[in-house]
Write a protein that binds this DNA or RNA. Structure first.
Lengths: 117, 117
DNA sequence: TTGACACATTCCCATATCGGCATATATTGA
DNA sequence: TCAATATATGCCGATATGGGAATGTGTCAA
């Protein structure tokens, strides 16, 4: 096994920048394939392929509209990522707190130094 | 170009399940390489390799301690992912709202049906 | 200095990825 | 039915990935 299939794992699906762009574009509303391909400056087959992946992991939904296929974002699909990252939220807040404390300490020292002059 | 290098992109680094596990383990505090390898049920070289990737994208920090190397989580590295996902938060809340409304509608209909009997 | 231990790096292989290109498969209108 | 348009799929090549096994490097203690 080399790597988890991109088609079965949301984290992998989103690891591809182009696919992230697609999701961002779709957050503005439904789009057709050609529409997306144009915005991404990518050929239509590539767009279709990326959309296929996104569809397979449940990040987008399709709807036929005449000879077009309109893709829509399925925001809930991102929840697993959100939830996972959220468990680390405290971590970086703590880091920032420490940085903050450190900076305050520096400033205090600075003030003290000034006073001495 | 086949895929963004896992060593240069946080999203890719985290796309590998084993690496996500490592981060989770590290959220409990510093760990040595062998320690991690044991917990992950992975051979030491694999652990080292994954840690290398995580280090290169700034998700972990190392500290030499005798002949051991203690790895620590750098939570701030995950912020880009958090921020990105957060822009979609509204999306799935809206979906949930719609679902909620739908369920309420169902219940209402149910009550009406009961009343008719 | 030597041996023991912890860790990092290198090489190899099987596999999967993404993009390009050509080609299917709808769907619509004449 | 046929042509035009929109989309999907298949095949190819270049590249990168992750695991295994072997080996290199660094640190400590005797």
């Amino acid at each position: 096994m080399a790597r988890l299939a991109t088609t079965s794992d949301v984290f992998n699906a989103v690891a591809e920048p182009r696919r992230r762009q697609i999701l961002t574009l779709l957050s503005g509303g439904e789009r057709s394939v050609n529409d997306l391909a144009r915005q991404l400056r990518v050929r239509q087959p590539q767009a279709s392929k990326h959309l296929r992946v996104l569809r397979q992991v449940g990040l987008v939904r399709v709807r036929g509209a005449g000879q077009q296929r309109l893709y829509a974002l399925n925001g809930q699909g991102l929840k697993p990522i959100h939830d996972w990252v959220k468990t680390f939220e405290r971590q970086w807040n703590e880091s920032l707190d420490r940085l903050d404390a450190y900076l305050k300490e520096l400033q205090k020292k600075e003030r003290d130094d000034v006073r001495k002059r």
